[in-house]
Design a protein around this nucleic acid. Sequence first.
DNA 1: TAGTGGTCTAGACCACGAC
DNA 2: TCGTGGTCTAGACCACTAT
Lengths: 264, 264
Amino acid sequence: MTISQHTQGIRRDSALPYYEQLKRLIVEQIADGTYGPGDLLPAEWQFCDRYGVSRTVVRQALGELVVEGQLNRHRGKGTFVSARPYREQFIESTVGFFEDLPSGSETVRRKVLSVQQVVPPEAVARGLDLAADEPCVVVERQRYVGTDIGSYTKHYLPTLLHPDLMRAIGDFDLERRSLYVFLDEVCGVQISSGHRTLEAVSNTPRLAKLLGAARSVPVLYIRGVGRDSTGRKVELFEAWHRGDRTQIDIDVAGPTRSAGIVDY
Amino acid sequence: MTISQHTQGIRRDSALPYYEQLKRLIVEQIADGTYGPGDLLPAEWQFCDRYGVSRTVVRQALGELVVEGQLNRHRGKGTFVSARPYREQFIESTVGFFEDLPSGSETVRRKVLSVQQVVPPEAVARGLDLAADEPCVVVERQRYVGTDIGSYTKHYLPTLLHPDLMRAIGDFDLERRSLYVFLDEVCGVQISSGHRTLEAVSNTPRLAKLLGAARSVPVLYIRGVGRDSTGRKVELFEAWHRGDRTQIDIDVAGPTRSAGIVDY
DNA sequence: TAGTGGTCTAGACCACGAC
DNA sequence: TCGTGGTCTAGACCACTAT
């Protein structure tokens, strides 16, 4: 069989399997607009012809893209590009959680309200698996998206993380850089797992003020802990988000099944 | 070729595809302890021999079980039952999210408000990757924990899932058994991944009534889609939960980072 | 070296959807 | 009726793991 040449074809000498190369070609063509959301893709046999591969290869490529949510197939009709475009999906998987980024380019800023060293309330100490009287640093901040407040947060960090945690935090630009960057770069700690609890709660005068919102705005309350790769708890936080500006996206991945399945 | 007989074999005359039958056989054997967590499964060619099917069939069955998290494969070593046993996975998938189960033994009940076949709004059709005019069945329910309403839900199921979905739903005890049991047992569909979006929203007179709660009670709104192991979208839902009775727990697993990481 | 899963070929027949 | 994806066969060669 002769192998036809195309500007973008499948390389027989590549280390990548054919189906993987084909996947990337298709993803590229979705990204560059060759195929738009909702468009009908060529039939499977056309991919076979065009790229000189067997139907197995084409089906594996398309099948994985279906599992990844990029495509959907209907017997007797064809294979279609999913309504939701690729880029949006990318945002989801890396952010997973966002406060209405109005024009997509709005900057996230944070205002530090206070940084204090305290002996935490007993509930916090227990939540962080700390010995009694073990001190923590509490950071209170407001998080802005654009010019509006999105949330008010309270983070507890064990002083164990750093020989002089108070000073280290003071030296760090927490307004422009995330707390997780601080933990990583300054304390050498990477959050690799954790737990979150979410609730819708009533607004209060104090919260309304901290969130720069009317009393009528609903509030989303989140408590969480983060663990490093050894499983040690390294942060505990509480966050109150403006309901009208916050939306949480959760991908319930196949095998992990980590959250969000209710037995409705 | 002669076809060997086994007490539990693959029926050539079944409506179910061979790989689906094989999947169920394997799941059964995991459930009944024939294969325990961490156990090495027979090699692919052994499944081919034992059940008289081609390797394609075996690989599709095993592949979907890997996507569903039941198995994991390692080139050169073999196919293993996932460390997390089946039952636990079931529990996790149903808990993860709960409406205050006061004494831990309160019963979950559901009241079906309506079941209708409709051509869904365009947004729902797009959300489910359905062709325009493709009908859906809409199920509206209230979910009770004990004697109080916990949530009001609206589920959309494509009629494609079953030759007579309306009748099948009518014949099923949706008040005592979950919709996911219905999808599994009646439609042969297992939800293996999905997506959720959560928001705190304002209460309204209509919602307050549907939730049996005062206007002052905050409301948690959840939209979601579920996919089967091939990635096909099989359900879409909207749920409004009483904020004072609902709490969502999310485990953010190590590498997946599927949800809940904000760059505070 | 032997056994495993990973990839691939070149066919086949079927069920479903659109016409 | 025809084109689509869904399922299936019976091979093949390769890369990786264990011994």
